[in-house]
Amino acid sequence: MMNDMSKIEQGIAVDAVKIQARGVQVFYGEKQAIKDVSVEILDKTVTAFIGPSGCGKSTFLRCLNRMNDTIDICRVNGDIRLDGEDIYDPAIDPVQLRAKVGMVFQKPNPFPKSIYDNVAYGPRIHGLARSKADLDEIVERSLRRGAIWDEVKDRLHEPGTGLSGGQQQRLCIARAVATEPEVLLMDEPCSALDPIATAQVEELIDELRLNYSVVIVTHSMQQAARVSQKTAFFHLGNLVEYGDTGQIFTNPEDPRTESYITGRIG
């Protein structure tokens, strides 16, 4: 009842599945990093992946846009579907997939280019702009979505690396949304930011949710509680518990979840 109400308040389209993962196993050589994970990631929802270091949450996140393809010894079994389409199908171009499933990393990593070119890079290589005016518009729209337009509009041609850490991270988010992705993966996007910049990014995540499915890996339990509607707890390569964030943080079902989120040894 309460959950239904909060969904209505937040204007969430209830239960539209964006990504469906079934029986996912990941190996790094001989070592199995993900045991057997099945989960449905909802559209227009922020899903938080939490768990201790080495639990597999980042590994699983990186399966969702095939970032693990870049690691030679990594092998992924199972089935991951984006809007019903198998993303590991040989016919799928990982570059195209990553335009649809964007990613933001722990450390802001702007290209050593101008602010403008950082954002324009993706649309250019994917041929999303027909003209200079078109590209200008995409850059402005993306920087606005990244909630950084007002701060950079007068210095678009200065290097992105000259911005503060929080600004760089919002620039990277703007860069990620420039290719009109449908899903945004964020791997600890605030761990290098101060509390103000963190709050700005969290506010941005809340806005992005209106248009995207957002999946965020975070070590900050409070951040997971603040920004997400769904939380998945990973432990030793297993998805231990997945549910509404409110329920996970007030009344988790699994003792391992309880031990972890309350800061007990578990």
Binding site: P255, E258, S259, T262, R264, I265
Partner: peptide, 16 residues
């Protein structure tokens, strides 16, 4: 809710 979690101590002992 679990008996286990209630018996375990917090990593930060001052919380307990």
């Amino acid at each position: 809710m679990t008996d286990q979690a209630m018996k375990e101590k917090h990593i930060v002992r001052s919380f307990d």
